[in-house]
């Protein structure tokens, strides 16, 4: 194994890692926002709304992420062209980001829903007793409480998402894994590069989940 090749490839590996992290952060933000909206819809008393949100969640949870990534890669340009009426090319990054946001939203939704449901009825009643409306009670009391409780779970899911971003390899995006793989091919040091990539993923995921566990302990005590 020749690690000098890996060191020489640091700039391009760094770019790949940056893309991976960018995708992760944006997908988490988008996913949590859509997921929260879905959770509120699922818990809503409007039948149609909760049914639709439930279907969305079940649907995305029963198909592989890789299928979503691949499909969106094909159809997002189609859709955008159809909506905007122009024929602008849409990059793989956008299609992947949309795929991740929509897919992960289903998982985030379930976490948020469980978080909201764990807030005692007494809290909600107390909020109503103070004269708050439903949206106010949600926004000012229930959601802040729920998010505090769910933070560890949301972060844990984000770490999974971080690992899952490696699947963008399927549509040829140069994320961290794909850069490592192609550098490995070019230099003939595929073993070294792949093992190095595995190590980096491990260190980041393991480090992050250790921090999350510590946070979880602090929050529960």
């Amino acid at each position: 194994m020749d690690f000098t090749q890996v060191i020489q490839a640091f700039p391009s590996l760094g770019n790949g890692l940056l893309l991976t992290l960018e995708l992760t952060v944006l997908a988490v933000i988008g996913g949590v926002i859509i997921g929260t909206a879905l959770a509120l819809a699922r818990l809503s008393s409007i039948r149609v709304l909760s049914w639709l949100a439930g279907f969305y969640v079940n649907y995305f949870r029963s198909i592989p992420l890789l299928l979503v990534i691949t499909w969106f890669y094909f159809i997002v340009p189609f859709m955008v062209g159809w909506v905007t009426g122009t024929n602008q090319p849409i990059g793989a990054f956008t299609s992947c980001l949309i795929a991740f946001m929509m897919f992960e939203a289903a998982y985030f939704c379930e976490i948020v829903r469980a978080g909201i449901q764990s807030i005692s009825k007494g809290q909600v009643n107390a909020a109503y007793a103070l004269g708050m409306t439903y949206p106010q009670a949600m926004r000012l009391v229930v959601l802040p409480l729920a998010f505090r409780k769910m933070t560890p779970l949301l972060l844990q899911q984000s770490i999974i998402l971080f690992q899952d971003t490696s699947l963008v390899y399927a549509v040829g995006m140069m994320d961290f894994l794909n850069v490592a793989r192609s550098q490995g091919d070019i230099t003939g040091e595929l073993h070294t590069f792949l093992l190095f990539a595995g190590l980096v993923y491990f260190v980041i995921s393991f480090g992050a989940s250790t921090l999350v566990k510590r946070l979880q302990k602090r929050l529960t005590v």
């Binding site: 490696s166 793989r181 595929l190 792949l194 393991f206």
Partner: peptide
């Protein structure tokens, strides 16, 4: 558990298939 949970599935697959 920590080893297999903290490395992405695709990386593991590449390792099993290529290495």
């Amino acid at each position: 558990v920590e080893l297999f949970r903290n490395v992405p599935l695709l990386v593991q697959l590449f390792i099993w298939y290529f290495i």
